[in-house]
Simulated scan of single mutants.
Amino acid sequence: MTAPERMRALLAKPDFVTMPAVWDGLTAKLTAGAGFATAFLSGSCVAASRLGGPDLDLISFGEMFDSFNMVRGAAPELLVLADGDHGYGNAMNVQRTVRAYGRAGAAAILIEDKITPRELTAAGKPCLPREEARMKIRAAVEAAKDSGILVMARTDCRPTQGIDEAEARIRMFVDEGADILFLDSPADDGEFQRAVAAAQGRPSFAVLSPGPGRRIPSREEAIALGIKIGTYPTAMLSASIAGVKSGLAALAAGGAESEMALPAAELRTTLGYGDYDKEAKPFLPKG
């Protein structure tokens, strides 16, 4: 089965899908090793790891695609939802983005309706006019036919244009053939419920990490609201930053490592030194 086919089969099951957010080979390998079938290549996590900064549409297609290839190489069986952002341009750019990720083995791709380039402020998420947003999703769905990659359509318009417009866009994206729907920044449970109803039986996606300006349900609450997929962009990122800070503090204090550090043997096992030796053995020169 292809990655998109496996993703469809996963979403057809009754279970809630927990989708950790990854950004490189190590986080992908650890996620797969922990038993997760799927992960989200998060733009915010890639921005943090590559730029050392926030996710404000500064990451390029090339940088995101390079990160995807790292993830894919380290954990080839992991079903990856790629963050395609706004498609990096108009509808034709969207098609190029979708086709590239489809050829590379992504299971699904997110396309959103924000305006690009964004205004020179960290606040707000101005969005495209409705019909222009429609054409971007139409272009994505058309391009997805080449590989079967699933299209997640995201609307960011709720904070600036209200829930009525956001609900209308979700219904429009369903009409255009989007496979998964994502309302960004819902204010309360009622808005979640409206978004799920507008998805008309197709899976709904939600960010369940803590963050400002939105209702953040627990896993159990999300299931009760009808959410099918939950992602947690800060779950590993925040813990990783805390770990690095702890290591640096230990060095500054004259130590060799933090109390949080893995034992040396566990670190080597996690990184795969033994696996390398096993795979290299058939190629050792005789004698």
Rank of each mutant, 00 (worst) to 15 (best):
M1H: 13
M1N: 12
E5S: 14
M7D: 04
R8Q: 12
R8P: 01
L10K: 05
F16T: 11
T18F: 11
M19Y: 03
T27A: 14
K29S: 15
K29W: 12
L30F: 12
G33D: 15
A34P: 03
F36D: 02
T38Q: 05
S44Q: 10
C45I: 00
A47K: 01
S49M: 10
P54Q: 09
L58R: 14
S60V: 13
F61C: 07
G62I: 06
F65E: 01
F68V: 07
F68P: 03
F68K: 03
M70Y: 12
A74Y: 07
P76Y: 04
V80L: 05
L81W: 02
A82Q: 03
D83I: 05
H86F: 14
G87V: 03
Y88P: 05
N90I: 05
M92E: 15
V94D: 02
Q95P: 04
R96N: 13
A100C: 10
Y101C: 03
G102N: 05
A106L: 01
I109H: 01
I109G: 02
I109S: 02
E112D: 10
T116L: 13
T116Y: 15
P117N: 10
P117H: 09
P117W: 08
A122L: 09
G124Y: 12
P126W: 05
P126Y: 09
C127G: 00
E131M: 12
M135P: 00
K136T: 00
A140L: 08
V141D: 03
A144W: 03
A144Y: 03
I149D: 00
L150E: 04
R154C: 08
T155N: 07
D164S: 14
A168D: 11
I170R: 01
R171K: 14
F173L: 11
F173G: 01
F173D: 02
V174Y: 06
V174H: 06
D175Y: 00
D179I: 03
I180Y: 01
F182D: 03
L183A: 06
L183T: 06
L183E: 00
D184V: 00
A187M: 10
A187Q: 15
A187P: 02
D188V: 09
D188K: 09
G190A: 13
F192G: 01
Q193F: 04
A195P: 02
V196S: 04
A199R: 04
Q200T: 09
S204H: 08
A206S: 15
V207D: 10
V207N: 15
P210M: 12
G211R: 07
G213K: 13
G213D: 10
P217G: 05
S218V: 06
R219N: 07
R219I: 13
E221Q: 14
E221D: 07
A222E: 02
A224C: 09
I229E: 02
T234D: 13
L237A: 15
G243E: 06
S246W: 05
A249S: 15
A249M: 15
A250M: 12
L251E: 10
G254M: 11
E259G: 15
E259W: 02
M260Q: 15
L262E: 13
P263E: 12
E266I: 09
L267Y: 13
L267N: 13
T270H: 00
T270C: 09
G274V: 00
Y276V: 12
E279R: 13
E279L: 12
A280K: 13
K286V: 11
K286I: 08
